[in-house]
C-alpha cells in the first residue's frame, strides 16, 4: 500500500517536472519566434529591428515588430508562416506590428501598419481561418479583408 502510494507520488512529481520543463521551454522559445522570411530584396532594402538596421537579403528571418523599409531604389518581398505575403516598393515602410499563428491553441492575429509608400498584401491562412484577426492599418484608415490581395499607398505626412 505504502509502496503503491509512493509510486503514484513519483509519477505525479515527474509529470509536474515535465510540465514545468515544457512551460519554460515555451516561454524561452517565444521571444525569438521567427514569423517569416525575406524572399525577394533589391536595391536599398532593410529590416529595422529595434534600433538596428539589417540589410535585407533573401532568407533573412523576420520577427514580430520588424519594420520593412526601402530607399529610393529598393524593393522587398516577404512570406510569413501562415502563407501571408507582403511586398513594398521604393521609399516605403511597413511594420509587422503583431503576429500570432498557432491555430491549435486558437491564437491567430496579424496587424500590419503601412507607414509610407506602396505595399501589397496577399492573404494567407490567418485571413482564411479568421478574417477578423487581420487588421491592415494606414494612418487614415483600417482595411479589413475577406481573403484577398490588397495594394495600399500611403503619402508621406
Amino acid at each position: 500500500m505504502t509502496n503503491h502510494r509512493s509510486t503514484r507520488f513519483a509519477v505525479i512529481l515527474s509529470m509536474t517536472g515535465f510540465g514545468v520543463a515544457f512551460a519554460s521551454m515555451v516561454v524561452c522559445a517565444q521571444p525569438v519566434q521567427t514569423i517569416g522570411r525575406v524572399k525577394i530584396a533589391a536595391g536599398n532594402a532593410f529590416v529595422l529591428r529595434g534600433s538596428t538596421s539589417i540589410p535585407a537579403t533573401p532568407g533573412l528571418a523576420l520577427l514580430e515588430t520588424d519594420r520593412l523599409k526601402t530607399g529610393s531604389d529598393g524593393r522587398l518581398g516577404v512570406s510569413l508562416n501562415d502563407d501571408t505575403r507582403i511586398s513594398i516598393g521604393p521609399d516605403s515602410e511597413t511594420r509587422l506590428t503583431h503576429y500570432r499563428y498557432a491555430p491549435a491553441e486558437g491564437a491567430i492575429a496579424l496587424v500590419l501598419n503601412f507607414v509610407r509608400g506602396a505595399a501589397v498584401y496577399a492573404s494567407g491562412q490567418i485571413a482564411k481561418l479568421s478574417p477578423d484577426a487581420v487588421r491592415l492599418e494606414t494612418p487614415a484608415a483600417i482595411v479589413g479583408v475577406r481573403g484577398t490581395t490588397v495594394a495600399v499607398r500611403v503619402d508621406p505626412e
Partner: peptide
Amino acid sequence: PQDLAVILPDSDGSVGRA
C-alpha cells in the same frame, strides 16, 4: 496626405472583398 487602397485579383484570379 492621402492614402489609396485597391483590391486586386488573387493569384488564382478570384477577387475577395475588402
